[in-house]
Amino acid sequence: MKRLPFSGWHLVLAPLALLFALPLVWLLVSSVMSNAEINRFPPALWPQGIKLDGYRYVLGNALFPRWFLNSFIVSAVAVTANLVLGTLGGYAFARIRFAGSKIVLGLMLATMVIPFQLTMIPTFLVMKQLGLIDTLGALIVPSLVTPLSVFLFRQFFVSLPRELEEAAWIDGCGRLRILVSIVLPLARPALSTVAVLTFLATWNDLTWPLIAINSDSTYTLQLGLTTFQGQHHTQWSAVMAGNVITVLPVLLGFLLAQKAFIRSLASTGLKG
């Protein structure tokens, strides 16, 4: 890499970046402290050595592994379903002419402005009718597909040149074949955007699990962590270990696919 000259901006940017990073550094540090170090006054600012008691407690005695699995199932199903249903819907709205498509698309986009708290009580009652309350199904069904996913795919497919599909169409390929074998291989940016946004939304959600789930074995990580903190507020190292476990998948995903994350989130801003 080419060496760049030192800039005075480092004096501003380095402390600023540190300010944003510090709480997360402290999260990691306190998760490997012993309770003795945390519970003395004033509490230690740096651990003597790495103690994994918190992690041992959280992974051994508590329901954290179960909550992790629940969160993983909900997020994985939601991401897969948004990719499948979103590409189908987005492709049809972009390419297929059918009666009512404009009205239905407009109506779906209009639902994006509905705030969640307006729909949460009836959604709860609907899920109750379906017998899904207190099951992962109650978390999965409302997140199977969002209007944003359909819209992002539609915008992407509209931007692709039609010529790519025409040859296959003339050769008699069906729409599904065209979508899967010609369009989808080109759609990686859109697929990663929808996957990132869906994963963030479902993994990080607290409000809806709080309403829809009662039994602790069905909790998601966010709900489990919140409850765990309420019950173990003197065992901070265990709480912080649980917190690290809750945050880690998102942080790792972000660090590994940073470009996709940033492009996805910036695109919601610039096109919105």
Binding site: F20, N204, L223, T246, V250
Partner: peptide
């Protein structure tokens, strides 16, 4: 570093 807190859930 400036952006990373944004992906941390409100619960965390």
């Amino acid at each position: 570093l400036v952006f990373v807190p944004f992906v941390v859930s409100a619960a965390a």
